[in-house]
C-alpha cells in the first residue's frame, strides 16, 4: 500500500477483522516496527523518536486509562507526558470540550464505558496533536457521545490535523473522512479520495469486498 496524507486530511480505514487495520495504526503510532516498507510522519521515518511521538495522539478501543485515577488525573498525567505547559488548564479545557466536566473528578472505574471513551479521547488530544490515530473511537459511545466525538474530530481536522480512523462505523467515519480505504489481508483493496461515494453505495461496496474476504 502507498498513501500520502496532508494536514487536514482524514483517512477512514474499513475492513474485516484481521485485515491489518490496527496493525497499520500501531505502526503509525510507533508501537510496532515495520518488517518491510516504511512510514513517514512529517518527514521523519517511523518509529522515529520523541519528536515524532509528541505530534501524534492515539485513541484505542481500549481506554488506556487508569481505573483508580479520576478522569482529570488521567488527562493531566497524559498532558505531563507530552510536556504540555499548563497541565491543569489544558485538562480542564479538553474535558469541557468533550462534555466531560461533570464527571471530571470521578474515578474512571465508576464511569460508564461511553464516559470512559470520552476521557480516553481527551487524554489523546490534550496535547493538540497534529496527527490523531483513532482505533474504533466510537466504541461504547451513545448517539450523543458519538455526535460529540464526530464534531470534535471534524474540528480537529479543520484546524489542520491529520486523522486516521479505523472503524466499522461507516456513518460517522464517512461523514468525517476526506479519504476512505477498505483493507484486506494487509492491503488496500479500494481507495477513494473525496468525493467519497454516497453512504449507501459505499456500504454496498464494503459489504461486497468484506464478503469476498470471508
Amino acid at each position: 500500500m502507498s498513501l500520502t496524507l496532508a494536514p487536514g486530511d482524514c483517512l477512514a480505514l474499513f475492513g474485516p477483522n484481521g485485515a491489518g487495520k490496527t496493525t497499520l495504526l500501531r505502526l503509525l503510532g510507533g508501537l510496532l516496527r515495520p518488517t518491510s516498507g516504511s512510514a513517514v510522519i512529517e518527514g521523519v521515518p517511523l518509529p522515529g523518536g520523541a519528536d515524532v511521538r509528541a505530534r501524534v495522539g492515539l485513541v484505542s478501543h481500549q481506554t488506556m486509562l487508569y481505573d483508580a485515577l479520576t478522569a482529570r488525573e488521567n488527562v493531566e498525567f497524559a498532558a505531563r507526558m507530552y510536556g504540555v505547559s499548563d497541565v491543569g488548564a489544558a485538562a480542564s479545557d479538553v474535558l469541557e470540550r468533550l462534555g466531560a466536566t461533570s464527571f471530571a473528578d470521578v474515578r474512571v472505574r465508576l464511569l460508564s464505558r461511553g464516559m470512559q471513551q470520552r476521557v480516553s479521547v481527551a487524554r489523546a488530544i490534550v496535547h493538540s496533536p497534529s496527527v490523531l490515530l483513532a482505533d474504533e473511537p466510537f466504541t461504547g459511545l451513545d448517539a450523543a457521545g458519538a455526535a460529540a466525538l464526530t464534531g470534535m474530530l471534524a474540528e480537529l481536522r479543520d484546524s489542520g490535523a491529520t486523522i486516521v480512523i479505523v472503524t466499522h462505523n461507516l456513518d460517522e467515519a464517512l461523514a468525517l473522512c476526506t479519504t476512505a480505504a477498505i483493507m484486506r489481508e494487509g492491503r488496500f483493496v479500494r481507495l477513494d479520495h473525496a468525493p467519497i461515494p454516497a453512504r449507501d453505495e459505499y456500504t454496498a461496496l464494503y459489504r461486497e469486498l468484506s464478503a469476498d474476504a470471508a
Binding site: G29, A50, R53, L58, Q62, Y66, M81
Partner: peptide, 13 residues
C-alpha cells in the same frame, strides 16, 4: 487491563 502501557509508549518520554 486497559492497555495503558501503549499510551505511555506512544508518548514522547
Amino acid at each position: 487491563p486497559t492497555h495503558a502501557m501503549d499510551a505511555l509508549l506512544a508518548a514522547p518520554v
